[in-house]
Design a protein around this nucleic acid. Structure first.
Lengths: 237, 237
DNA sequence: ATAGCCGGGTGGTGA
DNA sequence: TCACCACCCGGCTAT
């Protein structure tokens, strides 16, 4: 049996259909007065819902950037949903480019993830998808995208995960087995291969990686630029 | 005098109106065969343009996540533009939620910035706004990036950078000095401290990190309190 | 010789 | 997300 998905909704959103749709989908909807955001989907992810017209208006009042800032300050994964006929409204504008510029500023400048939807139903579907995703802790993307590791053990896992074929799960097992990063990094192929989830092939791959000589110039790609700029020219032997 | 905005466009995009619109706006359009992305707006920012129908289809072929991954690996600011009547198409689908889930995965999992537009004209306006925005930052570097698998030396630098107080530059120096990751990880405090940019304090910090015992659930009571307070879910009374 | 600038590099913070 | 700041390191310099 799987746990109920929970989402915290701002009181003011009661006037929209979205919360009702969410609870009809099986989500547990809980109302609060939220200082920022409209739908809190997980401790790190909140959604701000804005009607297309309101979105465009708030560009000129400067309110948009304020909200984007507050949202990204409060949550690691800030999402802004623009709901409604945005395209038509932008086409009616005198200078549509400023609207696209604002869009770019919000998503690139503040790191807010934008999604446009066509209706409240679609907004609800999106929020549901977000809740599902956040709840599962689903990692579709590469693990390097992990936000930030604060605790020591998280940093250790992150470090061990840089080994080829080693993700967070395996890193945990390896660290449990060896006790510290140093011991892991100095372990022999046979010792590493003994850990569950690591076979001979993977163990050898890891050893090969650790022992690989460092040659940034390598096979002469355009990457040379980096290594050249990194070279220190102040050798005075 | 301000410099002309330049954008590199994939050859295949010639068949669309967008490049023509861009150059009529005053952008310098340069055609190339791009390995990834359709519009390269700056050394760090590229845009992949997808028709709404194509976008939805590529979800089911699995091609979407592949493209998202390649885009985000090659550029720091990957942008995906979904052009056309997405809302209507999604409403016609049997399970629209999977579409929103895919959208969420692309933008949250892969860090791709999504923007929906209603027409080629709007896409052009967006690309223009991006070019303007990126131009202000004035970064230089190669416009075309390659999606090829990360080079060995890059992975080695990434691995060494997980050490505390060590970024890409220091990682390079450390690896040059020690020759391989294994040798770096087994080096003594004194040896590490000899490298330029690493003093006694930093060397000791690194050693402490490597030798720290792994205790995922936290051993210290004080530590426990901290993590509990951090994990405390959105109680905002 | 050495104590104090200064420029590069890192990582945390607030917008 | 990203730009800015504060700290750490090591070399230079002026005594």
């Amino acid at each position: 049996m799987r746990r109920i998905l929970r989402v915290v909704v701002d009181e003011r959103e009661k006037s929209s259909e979205v919360p009702r749709l969410l609870s009809s989908m099986g989500l547990l909807v809980e109302y609060r007065v939220l200082p920022v955001g409209d739908y809190v989907v997980s401790p790190r992810c909140a959604v701000e819902r804005k009607a297309a017209r309101d979105f465009l208006q708030s560009i000129y009042v400067g309110r948009l950037f304020d909200q984007a800032r507050r949202l990204s300050e409060a949550y690691d994964v800030p999402v802004m949903v623009v709901e409604g006929p945005l395209y038509e409204l932008i086409d009616e504008m005198e200078n549509p480019r400023s609207a696209w510029g604002a869009l770019a500023a919000v998503t690139i400048g503040f790191g807010v993830r934008l999604v446009m939807t066509g209706s409240q139903k679609q907004t609800a579907d999106l929020v549901y998808a977000l809740a599902l995703r956040e709840h599962r802790g689903e990692r579709r993307g590469p693990y390097v995208h992990h936000p930030r590791a604060r605790e020591l053990w998280e940093q250790q896992i992150r470090s061990a995960s840089t080994l080829p074929g080693v993700g967070p799960k395996l890193a945990d097992r390896l660290l449990r087995r060896f006790g510290s990063l140093r011991k892991l990094f100095t372990a022999s192929v046979a010792e590493v291969a003994m850990v569950e989830g690591v076979g001979r092939a993977r163990a050898e791959q890891i050893a090969k990686f650790l022992d690989a000589p460092y040659s940034p110039e390598g096979v002469g790609e355009a990457q040379k630029k980096l290594s050249i700029s990194l070279l220190d020219e102040g050798r005075k032997d």
